[in-house]
Simulated scan of single mutants.
Amino acid sequence: MWRWRRTHLGTEADRATFRTLHTASLAAPALREGLTNASAERSLRHLRALLGTPAAALTDTSGVLAWDGLGHHHTAETAQVVADLPEGAPTRITEAHCKDKGCAVRQLVIAPLVVEEVLVGTLVVGAPLATGGLVRAANEVAAWVSGQLELASLDDSRTALMEAEVRALRAQISPHFIYNSLGAIASFVRTDPDRARELLLEFADFTRYSFRSHGDYTTLSEELRSVERYLLLEQARFGDRLKVTLRIAPEVLPVAVPFLCIQPLVENAVRHGLEASADKEDGVGHLSITARDLDQECVIEVEDDGAGEDPERVRRALAGDTSMDSVGLGNVDARLRNAYGDDYGLVVETAPGAGTKVIVRVPKFAPGVQL
């Protein structure tokens, strides 16, 4: 019979390392939001715990954002020192001028916070004496804080890039589609006003969804509903020349997907696949959209039996070649890879005269992907 006995978890050095890493992990989420009053206040007590000093402060280049511990009366003095700090200045030690003989803050260690080689603020450490060990510790913590702030900057840049990509995609889609949709609706105004009214409502809902200003992600259900609206408008234009088949597994409808990741593929199929079907004997183009539940993934396929394409031209479109007349392929591919990793880019199967199938795989659950 095995008997459990409580034992120590490692050496004292191991436990000290764990405590340090745990304390740093508590400060990281706030710092990943950037250097603000709120993030400084939330992270600073953990940074001071790392240093084990009576006082610590975080500043930007103009003043003190937050002060933790003793010696709050040194805030104005610290702000002046930081304001006079030249670009590229190393860590410095300055005397804390204080008439209170009992004050534990007699010297300040001011370590720069640098993001992409630009001074963004400082970590200020207040102590009775700035020993060599304390200066080294302040430098290490400041370097770690700088790293977290740089990650925050990268997150902001990535978000701005994603928003720019979606804006570019909207601009790429909307003029062509709006012109054709309004033309189709206008053709029914006299002959079938009820249908014209229904199509106008579908057009309004489609554009409202496409031009919404919030959220990088949506559900597959919402994305496919927008696709259905788009196809209703295109069928009003093409009539019996466009046949659509939808096969959607109900289990995958709640899956989160990047906003506007399916509709551009469908528009591309219509523009480059089905518009070329006029050369076919029956003049009819077929489009199928399938969404399958595949264990931990959702697989969406958009397939047409149109003219197909040269695989080399598709490769160039996926690589972002804007000279390729292909609606958003490179944009959608890049956003899928940004969201889920390089294993989740678009897969395109095509050849001249053989139609085109575009396959999208998305994980049902992925870190950082939320509605």
Rank of each mutant, 00 (worst) to 15 (best):
D321F: 00
I289G: 09
S226E: 10
L9R: 11
A127L: 01
S25H: 09
S153Y: 03
A249H: 11
Q80K: 14
F211I: 00
A164M: 03
R271C: 06
G283V: 06
A319Q: 13
H176K: 07
L51V: 01
S288A: 05
E140D: 10
V244H: 11
N180F: 14
T94G: 06
I248S: 05
V82K: 06
I178N: 13
P254V: 04
G320L: 10
L200G: 15
L31H: 05
V120Y: 06
L119E: 05
V115M: 07
L260C: 06
R337F: 07
T131R: 12
A49W: 01
Q148M: 12
S181N: 10
V244I: 14
R136N: 12
T159N: 14
V299R: 14
D216G: 04
A278F: 11
R313F: 08
H176F: 15
M324S: 12
D192I: 01
L35Q: 02
E12Y: 04
A40Y: 02
T53C: 11
Y217R: 05
K364G: 07
F238N: 02
A24V: 04
H176W: 15
G345R: 02
G368N: 09
A55E: 01
A76M: 09
A104M: 10
G121F: 04
E303V: 01
R42I: 00
L47S: 04
L253M: 14
A319F: 03
K243Q: 15
A138C: 08
E117P: 00
C103D: 08
I289L: 15
S25E: 15
R241Q: 14
S226D: 10
L346N: 06
D333K: 03
S323F: 00
L201Q: 14
G132V: 08
R48M: 07
A142F: 01
A171L: 13
C98E: 08
P54R: 00
A111F: 02
A137K: 12
A204E: 14
D205I: 01
E117T: 10
A79H: 10
I173Y: 12
L47H: 03
A319W: 01
V227T: 14
R316M: 12
L246S: 10
V135R: 14
D325L: 12
M324W: 02
T53A: 13
P250C: 10
S62G: 13
D192A: 12
S221F: 00
R106L: 03
G52H: 05
L65T: 01
L151I: 11
A204T: 14
A55D: 02
H73F: 04
P175N: 07
E77M: 13
L201K: 12
S323E: 15
K280I: 00
A269C: 05
R158M: 13
A307R: 13
R3C: 00
V358M: 15
I248Q: 07
D155Q: 14
A160W: 07
L294V: 09
D342T: 09
G353N: 03
I185C: 11
T53F: 07
S39E: 06
G355F: 03
L65H: 03
F259G: 08
D205Y: 14
E198Q: 13
P264W: 05
T350P: 03
V124H: 03
G308R: 05
T78V: 13
